[in-house]
């Protein structure tokens, strides 16, 4: 593994995604990507007693499906990297309690999906782990309670708001050749353009996505068209045009290849305001639809830029602004199976 440019890593010793697993909630299961998920729940409770248990179940299912597809038992996994949006990363911690795999809990808000994958790939590539399991989750109701109001509270949300995706995605990486290779990663800086509105996270995260994509292209000496797809995590309908314009200002036209997971996951007539958000948003789209398309050969090289709004309700009440962060991972076509 070598450092490339200022903030990117190129995995010189190839690391591959062996398998992925996804589990989602009801609204995602009615969206355009419904057939690409491994498990779909009919209710937000996912047959559990409370929201936190529901989220934990989603991660457990994603992890188990992923390991099952790889044909690996949890006891054979060297390292588990997990994160979610809840205080103390409870979902990841409690899933790890059950899995009994050494855990690195990670938090980067909704960017955690690529943060865990990049770190996992780096540790595997460097030989600190023979293989690694990465997973993130988010749940609409746990996120509402953590960051906003009680689920049943009748406050009106503006159109710029996003809808936290209920789901979890997991990926299993090792050095064994497979059809999906983790080629490189770019670790993002915290970028704060002074957005204060917790109901407009797309605007808050767009500058962070811009900063990371720009750094990535410069570090790697690439241009947007080197990718079949540049996909951001959850910029939504508001942040997407901001990112494209910011890139254009620097002479990069990404509009041809850019899409946003937050807009891919739901139909435009679903009640999700300007799109999906949450750790699971980029995770279930990437580990579901995008991996599937790469295996089919639709895409040969994609850049997944998971975007996170590092929002804390306490900080906002103390008149702070919402910083953003974005981490990018390059996935390329690996060895033919």
């Amino acid at each position: 593994m070598t450092k490339t440019g200022k903030q990117s890593w190129t995995f010189t010793k190839p690391v591959y995604i062996q398998s992925t697993g996804t589990s989602v909630g009801p609204l995602e299961g009615k969206g355009p990507l419904k057939d690409t998920f491994d498990k779909v729940h009919d209710t937000l409770h996912c047959e559990e007693k409370n929201w936190e248990l529901a989220e934990r179940r989603l991660m457990m299912e994603a992890v188990h499906t992923c390991l099952q597809k790889a044909g690996v038992d949890a006891s054979a996994v060297d390292l588990f990297l997990a994160g979610d949006l809840l205080n103390q990363n409870v979902t990841g911690n409690y899933v790890a309690r059950q899995l009994q795999i050494p855990l690195l809990g990670m938090f980067g808000a909704c960017s955690t999906s690529m943060e865990t994958l990049a770190t996992g790939a780096a540790l595997v590539g460097a030989g600190y782990a023979g293989n690694a399991l990465v997973s993130v989750s988010s749940h609409n109701a746990t996120a509402e309670r953590q960051f906003r109001y009680p689920t049943e509270y009748g406050g009106q949300k503006p159109q710029t708001a996003t809808y936290t995706v209920t789901g979890s995605g997991a990926a299993f990486v090792s050095t064994k050749p497979s059809s999906i290779k983790v080629e490189a990663a770019t670790i993002g800086k915290v970028v704060d353009y002074k957005v204060k509105d917790p109901f407009d996270l797309g605007s808050a995260m767009a500058p962070a996505a811009w900063d990371t994509i720009k750094a990535h292209l410069e570090d790697m000496g690439r241009i947007p068209s080197d990718y079949d797809l540049i996909v951001t995590g959850d910029l939504s309908a508001v942040g997407t045009p901001i990112l494209r314009d910011l890139m254009k200002q620097d002479g990069y036209d990404i509009s041809e290849v850019h899409q946003d997971c937050g807009m891919l996951i739901y139909h435009s007539d679903q009640p999700v305001f300007s799109g999906g958000s949450g750790c699971a948003c980029s995770a279930v789209v990437t580990y579901g639809k995008l991996i599937e398309e790469m295996k089919k050969g639709t895409y040969n090289r994609i850049l997944v830029v998971a975007t996170g709004a590092l929002m804390s309700p306490t900080m906002l009440q103390q008149k702070e602004t919402i910083p953003g962060i974005a981490h990018a991972v390059v996935l390329t076509k690996g060895e033919e199976q």
């Binding site: 710029t160 353009y193 957005v195 407009d200 605007s203 500058p207 508001v238 942040g239 045009p241 901001i242």
Partner: peptide, 11 residues
């Protein structure tokens, strides 16, 4: 100018 300029992107 982001706070002001980004208004034009928001419905």
């Amino acid at each position: 100018n982001f706070e002001k300029q980004s208004k034009s992107y928001q419905p």
